[in-house]
Amino acid sequence: MTDHEIVDSSFTATINAPLEKIDIPKWCFSLSEKEYQGCSPAHVAAGFTTAPDGKRMSINVEVIGGSLMVQHYVETLGQKDHLILESVSDIFTPSGRTTIHVLWELSVKAIDAERCEFTNHVRSKATGEFMAFLDRQGIPFDVFRAQRQPMSIAHNQGETPFFAASIERAALKN
């Protein structure tokens, strides 16, 4: 495994709103902290800002598998029905601080005139810093990956229907 993929998980949920009313980037970059927290018990805080190059950023703080993560998601694609965010996320563990690379992709496609299918796709990969972090502790990457995957997949699966419901509420307000 040359790219050191940790997790690749994707889940779907139905949004009861027409495609033309949905705007995922608008939802993401105006998501209140309370609304974000309501999408998972692991969600601690959320906000938005801009990267040094002016691109929009979503800052998310969550706890997965007992580790605090601070995600600095930079928008790499922002279409009403498709948003791709990339982050070199900070992870705070009992053994210290490190980083992982996370790609978060949110998309919708019409099912019919009044409903859409929402997809929440999350991929994470080890950074060089992370590989060195594991090496210093004598933890083989495959062992870490096998332990981390179930927690990350369960988190994504749990938050997906709540994100869909939040996007639906935002769409129906428009």
Rank of each mutant, 00 (worst) to 15 (best):
R148Q: 14
G38N: 07
G54H: 09
S107H: 10
D90Q: 10
F130H: 15
I22S: 01
W27I: 01
I59P: 07
H72C: 11
V44I: 12
T2A: 13
F130N: 12
M131I: 14
Q37F: 06
F133E: 12
T76F: 11
E75W: 03
R56M: 09
T14V: 10
T98M: 07
C39E: 12
H4A: 08
D135A: 15
P161L: 06
V44W: 00
G158F: 04
L134Y: 04
V88F: 11
T98Y: 02
E159D: 00
D142E: 09
D8K: 05
L83Q: 01
D23V: 04
Q79R: 10
C39N: 14
A46T: 12
L77I: 08
E5M: 14
H82F: 09
T14N: 03
K34W: 07
H4N: 10
I22N: 00
L77T: 08
V63K: 11
T14P: 03
T127W: 02
A17Y: 00
F141S: 11
D142F: 05
C116M: 06
L172N: 13
G47Y: 04
A51M: 08
E35H: 04
D142L: 06
S95P: 10
V143I: 12
L83S: 05
A113Q: 15
V44M: 03
A126S: 08
A110R: 04
F144Q: 05
I167Y: 04
S40I: 01
L68S: 07
S107C: 09
A132I: 13
A170C: 08
M131H: 07
T160N: 04
H4E: 03
A170L: 06
A46Q: 12
L31D: 08
K173D: 11
A146R: 07
